[in-house]
Simulated scan of single mutants.
Amino acid sequence: MSLRDKIDEAAGKAKESVGKATEDDRMTREGKADQAEAKVRGLAHDAVEGAKEGFDDVKQTLGGLVDKAKDAMDRKK
């Protein structure tokens, strides 16, 4: 979760709290919605970062296998 997502989640929580304190149902719902949006955005961000790391791992592994195959072919020459 990025810093922006954490800030937006905290702002949503504050908005929800103010809504509850003032008995403003609309503000309470908006605060909850803001929190949910920030959480979803954070999860999407984390998923993208995880996919990038996984892709980098695969790329590194395949690169190592290609290097080993090239070395084996060079030794056979």
Rank of each mutant, 00 (worst) to 15 (best):
G50A: 13
D34P: 00
L62M: 08
D71R: 15
G63S: 11
A21N: 12
A44F: 06
S2K: 07
A69R: 07
A47V: 06
E9C: 03
D74W: 05
E16T: 06
K15N: 03
S17E: 14
T61K: 07
A38R: 05
K77P: 03
V18H: 00
D57F: 06
S17P: 01
L62N: 05
K32M: 12
D25G: 10
G54P: 00
A10C: 02
V18Q: 05
G19C: 03
K77F: 14
A33D: 15
K39D: 12
R75H: 10
D34I: 00
G12W: 01
A11F: 04
A10Q: 09
R4I: 08
L3V: 08
A72Q: 07
D71I: 09
G64L: 04
A38G: 05
G12N: 02
G42I: 11
D71V: 14
R4L: 10
D8L: 10
M1V: 12
G54N: 15
E30Y: 06
G19E: 04
V40T: 14
K59I: 04
K76S: 12
F55H: 08
V58F: 07
I7Q: 06
K13T: 08
E49I: 11
M1N: 11
E9Q: 11
K13I: 09
T28I: 00
V66P: 01
A14Q: 07
E9W: 07
M27N: 01
T61C: 00
M27F: 02
E30A: 13
E37P: 00
V18R: 07
F55G: 13
I7N: 03
K59S: 14
G19N: 04
A14F: 07
V66F: 08
A38D: 04
E30R: 08
R41C: 01
D57E: 13
G42W: 09
S2C: 01
K39T: 14
K20T: 11
G19Y: 02
A10D: 06
E30I: 11
T22Q: 09
E23W: 03
S17W: 02
D46W: 02
A33W: 01
A38T: 04
K77V: 15
R75P: 02
T28S: 15
K76Y: 06
K13A: 15
E49A: 15
D8T: 05
L3H: 10
F55N: 09
E53D: 14
A36N: 07
E9L: 04
A51M: 10
D56Y: 04
A72R: 09
D24Y: 04
G54V: 07
T22S: 15
R4Y: 05
A51Q: 07
K59V: 09
G42E: 12
R29K: 15
D25M: 12
D74C: 02
V48K: 13
D34S: 08
Q60C: 01
V48A: 13
G12Q: 03
K32L: 12
S17H: 03
A47G: 06
A33H: 10
M73S: 14
D8M: 05
E37I: 11
L43V: 04
S2R: 09
A11P: 00
T61P: 00
K13E: 10
Q35S: 11
